[in-house]
Nucleic acid binder design. Structure first.
Lengths: 237, 237
DNA sequence: AAGTGGTCTAGACCACTGC
DNA sequence: CAGTGGTCTAGACCACTTT
C-alpha cells in the first residue's frame, strides 16, 4: 500500500486509541481492540499495531495482559504539586488582576539549540511567542513559548492579550504528558529588564514541555522573579 | 537461531549499552554503536537493535539523530520535584557516590517563626540537624531539618553519616502528607561556603514540610546550587 | 555513494489464558 | 482449542547527513 506516509502509521493507531480513551468513549478497565483487530481495522501489520499498544502501555494509558487482552488503565487520581495551571487563573484566584504584555509573536525555524532544547527536527517550522504576565501591574512571569505549527496553525492570529497560550493550546491540543525542569538561574539582561528585577536577583526557571501522542506539542521557558514568586504544592504520597 | 530465550534479546542489547553508559566507559555525547553494528555484534535483526536504541532514547539515556548516529545523552543531576526521594538513593541511581557531612545536630527550643511553622507551643522541644550531602565529593544539597522530639526521640543518637534523616524518619514516622515550596534565592554567606558556590550564584530552595496524623512531623530547608542541580518531573495530568 | 536512523511488512515461534 | 500478547526475523523503502 504505497500511501503518502504523511505521518507514521503507529502514531495514527495511537491517536485513534488515545482520543477514544481521552473522550471517555472507552471507559477505564474496558477492553480495547486486540492487535489482530487493529491489523484488520487499519490495514497495518501486526508489528505496527503492537508498537502502538506497547507504547501506550509503557506510557501508562493501557494495561496489557498476555493471553487475555489490552485494557484502559485506571485513571490515577494523583495530586501534582506542580500542576499545569493557567497563570491568569492563578492570579485571579489570589484576587489579583492579570495583564498580558505581548513582546513578540513570530514564525521561526528550529535550528541549533532550539531544535535540541525543544526536541524537534532541525528546520522544523515553529511559532514562538514571548509574553510578560503581570499581576497587579507587576511583572511576575516571562513566558517564552514555542509550539509546533502543525499543532496550532492559527497561533500567529491569536490575541494573546485576551487569552493565554495555555488556554488556547488546551482547546486545540489537549496535552497528555508534561515534563518540568526547574532551575535557579541568574537571568540575562533582557529577561531582567522585562521582569523589572534588581541586579543580582535570581530567577526561577521552569522548562515545560508538553506532549500529545508522543510528539512534543509545545515547549515553554517560564521565568519568575525569585523575590516575588514561589511555587508550592501539597500532596499525599 | 533457536537459542534458549532466557531473556529478550532487545533487553540484552539495552543492558549492554546501559552498563557501558552507567560505568562511564561511554562518556556523554560519545557515539554508541549504530543499529547495523549491533546487528553484527549481537547477531540480532535490525528491528531488535532498533528497539533497544529507540527505548533507550525514549528513556532519555541516548539521543538519536537520523542520518548521523546515536549518542549518549547529557546526564545532568536530576530529581523529581513531585516526589519525596532519598537523596542518597537518587545519587546512587545516577551512578555517583554519596557522602554526608554532619554540620550540626542539636536540641533547640521552638521560638518565633519556628513555633508557628510547626504549629506547636513556643519553647517546645525540637531536634535540628544540618547536613551537607555530597555527590562524588561535590556538595549538592544542604539539608537543614527540624523534627518534633515526640516523633523521633532518638534523633540525636542517629549516625547521619550512615543513614539520611529521610531514611530514618521513614522508619519511625511514615509520612502522610507533604508540602513543597520552591524558591530561587541568593544564599547567605554560610550556605554559600558550605555548598562551595561561587559568588552571585543562585540557589534553589525547597521548603518541605511533612505531616503525620495531622501534626507536622518534620520541616526541612533544602538548598541546591543553581549551577549543579535541576529538578525534573514528568507526568500525565 | 555510503551510512544513518525511521518506519513498515508478512511471516514466525512461544507462553499464556479462557473456554 | 482458538485467541491473546511477547518477541524475533529478513527483508524493504524512505529521508536524511556526511564524505
Amino acid at each position: 500500500m504505497p500511501d503518502p506516509p504523511s505521518q507514521p502509521l503507529y502514531l495514527k493507531v495511537k491517536r485513534h486509541i488515545l482520543s477514544n480513551v481521552a473522550s471517555g468513549k472507552w471507559a477505564a478497565a474496558s477492553r480495547v481492540p486486540s492487535e489482530n483487530e487493529l491489523v484488520k481495522a487499519f490495514g497495518v501489520s501486526r508489528m505496527t499495531a503492537n508498537r502502538a499498544l506497547r507504547e501506550l502501555s509503557d506510557e501508562g494509558v493501557l494495561v496489557r495482559i498476555a493471553g487475555v487482552g489490552t485494557f484502559v488503565a485506571q485513571g490515577g487520581a494523583q495530586a501534582h504539586p506542580l500542576q499545569i495551571r493557567n497563570i491568569a487563573d492563578e492570579i485571579r484566584e489570589r484576587g489579583g488582576t492579570h495583564r498580558a504584555q505581548l513582546v513578540s509573536l513570530e514564525k521561526v525555524r528550529a535550528v541549533g539549540d532550539l531544535a535540541a532544547d525543544f526536541g524537534v527536527a532541525p528546520r522544523s517550522l515553529l511559532y514562538r511567542s514571548v509574553i510578560v504576565h503581570h499581576e497587579n501591574e507587576r511583572p511576575i512571569q516571562l513566558e517564552e513559548r514555542c509550539v509546533l505549527s502543525a499543532i496550532a496553525p492559527d497561533y500567529l492570529k491569536v490575541d494573546f492579550t485576551r487569552i493565554t497560550p495555555h488556554e488556547y493550546l488546551m482547546r486545540t491540543a489537549p496535552l497528555q504528558e508534561a515534563q518540568h525542569i526547574l532551575r535557579a538561574i541568574m537571568p540575562d539582561e533582557t529577561t531582567r529588564r522585562l521582569l523589572q528585577m534588581k541586579r543580582h536577583e535570581p530567577a526561577l526557571l521552569v522548562l515545560r514541555r508538553t506532549w500529545t501522542a508522543g510528539a512534543i506539542a509545545s515547549a515553554a521557558r517560564l521565568y519568575y522573579p525569585g523575590s516575588r514568586y514561589e511555587m508550592s504544592g501539597r500532596f499525599r504520597p
